[in-house]
Nucleic acid binder design. Structure first.
Lengths: 287, 287
DNA sequence: TCGTTTTGATCAAGAATGGTGATATATGCG
DNA sequence: CGCATATATCACCATTCTTGATCAAAACGA
């Protein structure tokens, strides 16, 4: 039993007719003429020597063969689309620099791996820095994209995800609720976490002291796990060495933080567009 | 990212080139001209704006994009072929009568179910009877097909499978090796099992008596499980109530039996062809 | 009920596509 | 250095596909 090949174009038309329920609407969707779609349907039936549809009044009804072919068609087209976009993706070339906050570096590797698989011809460079600095670099076109943290509803960039901020201490430490509260913070002005924490404490009337500062979480970690200070993190930054504190700790609630994607001011390059899309897809609200 | 549709014909050509390793050979396989295949390959590359192949000397080498597309192509074509043959199968209509030995009835239901799924428009009738009778009916065109048992290398029909014959007794019975041996047999002349058994005993110089006869195994079963007689079966006819005897029982070895498919003398109808093929596929040497 | 509108089928015609044979080019082999 | 084989390219032809126009049939509205 030889198997000639189906015409995917006709199958796409068939699916469009089924989806829209009418030849005319399908024609509109596919940017064909009504007569074209009508003839395509007939052509498909002729090629298979099968009656795929019948009409009751004006409404179209698919025969059981038609329905069956529709199933095949959808699977076939899904595979086709996947193949096509995979092949197109391989043509996307260029270089691309993305900036991320150091503390989110742990969140992204899987995205980078996936991106590299989809777009092997793109040279992706990743630069870590504080959010404020990254935003500057994007404006200066030193970066194509930057993923930054920011306070809720502050302007600039597209929001990718919102996350709650948490107070955290070392896993085996009791909360140090001394007054003033010993904080481990990022360098002054460098990061929103610091601003947020100080605002929250201030409006709660708590006093604090900066027990330690660093450019990144990595630098703060030893201090915190040693129990010398408490720190502000997002849920995705929690490690086994950190224990989050809930409201029973008596500390003021912290607002949500936003993760936003900034794009360089000119029209984004194709690789930048793709990576932006991928980041949005992969990081969107996994809560 | 819109996804235009690939041309499966071109993909088939691509696969053929890959399989045969040359444009000319692919053309031969596909019943195209060499120039056609050459242009098809170029067309495919043009449509995707990709270089799929390069030449080193005369030999063709696919680029990594080409190899990647080949993977997609094979999957796509497999799905296409499946869809096509499924749709074609639905057009096979007609009626069809198959004869089988009663004792093989238990072996076939799954085949019938599968057949009915593949060819829902075919009315399949199954008739049970002894092999000798079924052969007569096929010759008389009362049956389209008949599956029969026969002695090894006897003429007529196509061999579907060979099976060893076994002596069997009731599961909890000791072999009754009295002399003469009490046999449970099919009706005289009705089945090859009987002939085979008698030949084997005769040439071994054993005497026997027919303790019970019936038209089918179903009729013999009670006698055998009660331990009143021994019986000849194929491996596929063994039930939990039956225990096969090996050569240590002292009984003469039995020859292989053949399961053969007879077709009515005229050109087989399409449904008959399909069922024949299916039976061959499904029953072929599962040992 | 009778126009009006919308939808689908059909047709002829023009455009575009795809296949072919002939031919030129290149490669491998003796 | 040819000869044999494989591939690329080209012009031509046939077929296929799309389209606009037209017609028939339903649905719609008053």
């Amino acid at each position: 039993m030889r198997a000639p090949t189906l015409d995917l174009t006709l199958l796409r038309t068939l699916v469009a007719i089924s989806d829209t329920g009418s030849v005319t609407a399908a024609a509109k969707r596919l940017a064909y003429t009504q007569s074209t779609v009508s003839m395509q349907l007939q052509r498909l039936e002729a090629q298979l020597s099968l009656i795929l549809h019948e009409r009751e009044g004006r409404r179209i009804r698919f025969t059981s063969e038609g329905e069956r072919l529709l199933n095949h068609a959808r699977r076939l087209l899904a595979l086709n689309d996947e193949a096509w976009s995979d092949m197109q993706a391989r043509q996307v070339t260029g270089d691309l620099t993305l900036g991320i906050p150091e503390d989110y570096a742990s969140l992204l590797p899987s995205v980078f791996a996936y991106f590299n698989q989809l777009y092997p011809a793109v040279g992706l460079k990743v630069i870590c820095g504080t959010s404020a600095h990254l935003v500057e670099q994007v404006k200066a076109k030193e970066l194509d994209l930057a993923l930054v943290t920011r306070q809720r509803n502050s302007p600039g960039g597209d929001v990718i995800r919102r996350e709650p901020l948490l107070w955290a201490v070392g896993m085996h430490q009791q909360p140090l609720l001394s007054d003033p509260l010993p904080l481990a913070l990022y360098s002054p002005g460098a990061d929103v976490f610091r601003e947020v924490a100080e605002q929250a404490l201030q409006s709660a009337g708590r006093s604090w002291r900066v027990a330690y500062t660093s450019q990144s979480m990595a630098g703060l970690a030893p201090i915190v796990t040693a129990g010398l200070a408490i720190v502000v993190v997002t849920r995705s930054m929690l490690t086994p060495a950190l224990r989050p504190l809930d409201e029973s700790s008596g500390l003021p609630a912290l607002p949500m933080i936003e993760l936003a994607l900034h794009r360089a001011p000119h029209r984004p390059s194709e690789p930048a567009r793709r990576l932006g899309e991928l980041i949005r897809e992969q990081l969107a609200v996994p809560d």
